[in-house]
Design a binder for these strands. Structure first.
Length: 593
RNA sequence: GCCUUGGUAGCUCAGUUGGAUAGAGCAACGGUUUUCUAAACCGUGGGUCAGGGGUUCGAAUCCCUUCCAGGGUACCA
């Protein structure tokens, strides 16, 4: 039992002894004591007043006296309005540091036997990745790692959208205007080359629409009648019929894209346990529709189209199969969900997809539940906000996107400039330097994106570079490197208890309290599927260490061996938390920088 | 129209099951290096928590309402 649990238990018996009343555990509210008051743990007494039938101040005083008498580590108290501030003796915190924080298993969780799938990235193979995809990838990766750290068995899955009319657009444009251009001949990364033709298609398509409009057609007619769009549709049809020429082109161009994606994924540091391809799954779901019809979950309209009526759930009627028997988006998602479950039998399945699809997933999950799929309750849409530019939305077709590869290169370059300006890497080898600039640049980028709550939209201004100071990745990386340097200068070999230490400074005490929260931070980050809370926690830890480091005399020169060991122990656990926590964000912390 | 998510300092963001005087960073201004890495530390200024109403001992947080912004809205994904 930790001190909080002792206090809660003692408060329950106190209410019994003092007021002859039964209070429930969840009615007792504990919080950290604000720094301006004495004490470490505060009981909010307002909820207890209805049991004591006395004023908040009197209740607090009686309870405080009771706790000092009955709980060993509570050594004093003071009352400010309705708040009972408890002082906990230093030996308790020292023992917490020596026995809990420095335990080898601190901050780790045992396997919990649960399986969870995280589907993320899920790119289209007609264009390169942009900043929006970067947010998706980092979020998915980090959430997967967080779940792993919490004891789940995790499967990372990438469902690649490799077919459809948009893919045919790139293919058609390349065929017509490409003159056989290849990544080799152009020097372009494969995904960028394909993306170039996607943009060309759109440009030519718009030209045709304009021409048709001049010839008297409406916008709508022109969009339908443009020869290019008709050819693209024809190509899609041929693809579905297995036309060898079309399939060859499709394979060739997708191959270019995958080679490009591999590089971007590697730079982002993300990985997958399994890839699914829509070219293999797009026909799935028709059996599910049949099953739903038999179960009476769906109904057929006179034209033959199949629907579900969700009006009783506050939603609309939703089409699940076209009258001609072909699939819509949700048809294949129904089938794919089933297939994924058959493959992995997971307890939870998380879809990392932007908030523009909130409605789609609400419907998808509801349908599966109505069909009686027991696993449907484990499905979760991790919805995140769009990344906007000051000018508004990013649009691939119009070229107003922040390209992922460009951004990564810029971040690394900025890291190089800033680091060299500080002159700290003069004794680094070239290889070490490159590695460091990459780690710092990516640290800045990843932290920038992950520290914001997923569901909030995110504003990125390309004209302002991402910070390297303050609440940033590099600040935390720097703090880690600083500790590592300290430990090595002090020839800190390994942890041993510093039993002679009797007193703690205010900052040391605060540090111990903060560090002890690491496991619960990991748990709540995983529970809420949000790396943002962990990010902000790690920032607090780094900030606290820098304060400690600054106000304490040089530890390396400390003559009191036990005090020195104690301070190094504190530094050591701080570095461990920063390193392992940042790793869950996908960020590498350098040993020196 | 309807559904949904947001709105907190000049900017970017925190803010726990409702708890004490709403916090950080950036930007601005001032200070700190004969002391273990100054990507750091300390300080100053900066707020109608979008507006209004309600519930409560207590509301940025819960409820109602208005405004603003994003997203969705029956055969795109």
């Amino acid at each position: 039992m930790n001190i909080e649990q002792h206090i809660v238990a003692a408060t329950i018996t106190a209410v019994k002894d003092l007021y002859q009343q039964e209070i429930q555990e969840n009615q007792i509210s504990l919080q950290d004591t604000r720094v301006e008051f004495e004490g470490q743990i505060t009981i909010v007494v307002f909820p207890i007043v209805r049991f004591s039938k006395k004023s908040p101040e009197v209740t607090a005083k009686e309870l405080g006296a009771y706790l000092v008498e009955h709980v060993a580590d509570v050594t004093g108290f003071n009352v400010v309005k309705g708040f009972l501030n408890l002082s906990i003796a230093d030996p308790y915190w020292l023992s917490l540091l020596n026995n809990t924080l420095l335990d080898k298993d601190f901050g780790t969780f045992k396997p919990n036997g649960q399986k969870v799938m995280v589907e993320y990235s899920s790119p289209n193979t007609n264009k390169p990745l942009h900043l929006g995809h970067v947010r998706n990838n980092l979020l998915g990766y980090s959430v997967a790692e967080l779940l792993k750290a919490n004891g789940y068995e995790v499967f990372k899955v990438n469902l690649v959208n490799d077919r459809g009319i948009h893919i045919c657009k790139s293919m058609l444009a390349w065929q017509k205007f490409g003159n056989g251009e290849t990544p080799e001949s152009s020097g372009l990364k494969g995904d960028h080359l394909v993306g170039k033709y996607y943009v060309i298609f759109d440009k030519e398509y718009k030209k045709e629409i304009e021409a048709l409009k001049l010839a008297g057609q409406t916008e709508e007619e022109a969009k339908k009648n443009s020869p290019l769009i008709k050819q693209a549709q024809q190509m899609l049809l041929e693809w579905e019929q297995g036309n060898a020429e079309v399939l060859d082109l499709w394979k060739k161009m997708n191959g270019w894209v995958y080679a490009g994606f591999d590089i971007t994924y590697k730079n982002l540091g993300v990985d997958f346990d399994k890839y699914y391809y829509e070219s293999n799954t797009y026909l799935l779901g028709k059996d599910t529709v049949e099953e739903g019809l038999n179960k009476g979950v769906f109904f057929k309209k006179p034209d033959g189209s199949v629907w579900i009526d969700l009006t009783e759930d506050g939603l609309d009627q939703k089409l699940v199969l076209r009258a001609d028997g072909t699939s819509v988006y949700i048809t294949q998602d129904l089938g794919t969900a089933e297939m994924k479950y058959d493959d992995f039998k997971m307890d939870q399945s998380i879809y990392v997809v932007g908030n523009e699809q909130d409605y789609h997933f609400k419907v998808l999950f509801l349908i599966l539940e109505k069909m009686g799929k027991t696993w449907a309750k484990g499905l979760h849409h991790l919805s995140y906000g769009m990344v906007d530019l000051p000018s508004g939305k990013m649009k691939s077709r119009e070229g107003t996107v922040v390209d992922a590869d460009d951004l990564i290169a810029e971040m690394v370059e900025t890291a190089r400039q800033k680091t060299e300006a500080l002159g700290k890497t003069n004794d680094f080898s070239d290889e070490e330097k490159e590695r460091l600039y990459y780690d710092i640049g990516m640290g800045a980028l990843k932290y920038f994106l992950l520290k914001v709550e997923p569901k909030k939209r995110l504003l990125f201004d390309p004209s302002e570079s991402i910070d390297f100071q303050g609440n940033t990745g590099p600040f935390i990386q720097y703090t880690h490197a600083r500790i590592k340097s300290l430990l090595s200068k002090a020839e800190y070999a390994e942890y041993s208890k510093a039993t002679e230490v009797k007193d703690l400074s205010a900052t040391e005490l605060e540090m111990i309290m903060l560090l002890s929260k690491y496991p619960s931070e990991l748990a709540s980050a995983a529970k809420g599927y949000t790396p943002a809370t962990l990010s902000n926690y790690l920032y607090e830890v780094a900030k606290m260490f820098n304060k400690f480091y600054h106000e304490v005399p040089p530890i390396v020169k400390e003559e009191d061996a036990s005090l020195k060991q104690h301070r190094l122990n504190l530094s050591f656990i701080t570095a461990n938390i920063l390193k392992s926590g940042m790793k869950l964000l996908g960020i590498t912390v350098p040993e020196r920088m």
